[in-house]
Every structure is written in C-alpha cells, then in structure tokens.
Computed example of a mutant assay.
Amino acid sequence: MPQHFELSLPIDIDQVKGFLSHAEGEALFRCASELESGAVAVEIGSYCGKSTVYLGLGCKATNSTLFAVDHHRGSEEHQPGEMFHDSALIDDQGAFSTLASFRRTISAAGLDDTVIAVLSSSAQFAQAWRGSLGLVFIDGGHSLDAALLDYRSWVGSIASKGRLAIHDVYPGAEAGGQAPITVYRLALASGLFKEIVAVDSLRILERL
C-alpha cells in the first residue's frame, strides 16, 4: 500500500495564474505522492506553475523528481488577440512569456530541488529522453495536432502501473476544446490504460 501524505500548500495557490481547479490539483498531488521513491514524472505544459506546485509537492513527499516541460511562450490560445491572452505576461522583448512567473512560483513553493524546468517543446525533449516514467501529465497545446503529438511522444515511456493524466477533458464542445478528450479516448481505445480518477476536467489513467 502506498503511503498517505496530506497536502499542505506552502503558498497562496489562488495567486498563481492558471486554469486548474483545487480539486484537480489535489488529485494530481495524490497521484504524484503515490509514486515509488526516486521515480520520475513529466509535466507537459507548466504555464505559471500552478499544476507544477501540486505535482511537485507530491514528488517531494516521495523523493521523486518532476521534469516540468514548457517553452513558456504560450499555446495558441495565449497569443495576443486570443481568448486566454494575458497582457501582464508580456516580457521585456515584447513577447508572451510565463517563464519568470513560473520560476517565482517554484521558488516560493520551495520546490527548486524537486522540479527541473525544461525550456523546450514536449516533442524535442521526448526525442532526448531515455528511461521509464511513473507519471506523465499532458496539459500543453490544445490544438489536435499538438495534443496528439504530446501523447504519441510520451506514451511509450510510461511504465507498467504508471499514470497518464490529461487536463481539460470535456465531453462536449460547448464546455471546451475537444483535443484533450480525443487523446483521452485514444489512450483508452489503445487497451494500454484504464481510468482510475475523474475530477472536474482531469482524467487519470493507469498503464496496464
């Protein structure tokens, strides 16, 4: 039986920009805190670090490591003129960037020794990755091409009994984009996974 760890947030998580509910965050924490000691997890899409805090705290509890993969230039929906653009995240070069905000969040949460920030696209880092993973969290670009590329880049690295978490899984287009639920359905249809957690728009699957 895995150990049970209580979530204690070291920062005011509501002050961190992001699109994750607290219930979803708690589920990610529990998932990461069930990793074997010394395991490795990968987060695809960190934004300003809200989900990274939950995952990082879970990894810290088990002496595991979290690779937080993000180019920090935002997805399609974060660009100027798009629905989720935040003008406060424009850097001194005039470009959209979440990197400085992310670094402040991780440092404030005391996770510098647990979270390894990877400034890269998901596919680029996957090409260089060697080894198996206890957890992969997909919350990167929400176009169909981007979501499918993230899934296909990392699914082969998830160990037996490892977890695949997918955010923004909405059954209907009126609630949100359909790329994440397409990946979710693809993972289930592959016969490689079973669903073990469903919280708000978060789905967590376990590798068979």
Rank of each mutant, 00 (worst) to 15 (best):
T114E: 12
S21Q: 07
A146S: 15
V155W: 03
F67K: 09
V169N: 12
S122W: 02
T65F: 12
G74T: 04
A41V: 05
L133W: 04
A173D: 03
L119F: 10
I181M: 14
V199N: 04
A179V: 07
G58H: 02
L35C: 07
H167L: 03
L28H: 11
V69M: 10
R103I: 09
V53K: 01
Y184G: 05
F125G: 07
G81K: 02
K161D: 12
L144C: 11
I204P: 06
F5M: 11
L148Y: 08
G94R: 01
L20D: 01
E174T: 10
S33A: 14
I181F: 14
Y47R: 14
A32D: 10
G177S: 07
A126N: 09
S121Y: 08
E24I: 00
L186K: 12
A95H: 05
I13N: 00
I181S: 15
G56R: 07
Q178H: 10
L135P: 13
L119I: 15
V16M: 00
D92N: 13
R163D: 03
D150S: 04
A61V: 02
G134S: 14
G110D: 08
L66F: 05
D92E: 12
I158N: 05
V118Y: 11
A27T: 11
G81D: 05
M1H: 15
G45E: 06
E36P: 07
L35M: 14
V42T: 08
L89S: 05
G156I: 02
A179N: 10
P171D: 09
C59P: 06
S153G: 06
S21F: 06
L133V: 07
V118P: 08
D86Y: 03
H72T: 02
E76R: 13
G110N: 09
R130M: 08
L9H: 02
L20P: 11
H22A: 13
L164Y: 08
V69G: 09
D168K: 04
C59Y: 07
L28C: 06
W154I: 02
W129A: 06
F84K: 15
D14Q: 13
Y151E: 15
L186R: 13
S46G: 04
P171M: 05
T182G: 06
I13P: 01
G49W: 01
G191K: 10
A39K: 12
H22R: 13
T98Q: 01
I90F: 04
I11A: 02
I13F: 00
L144G: 08
A88H: 12
E82W: 02
A61S: 13
S75H: 08
H4E: 08
I196V: 14
E36V: 04
G134W: 09
A88Q: 14
S121H: 14
P10H: 05
A32M: 09
A187D: 12
A147V: 04
G25R: 10
R185C: 12
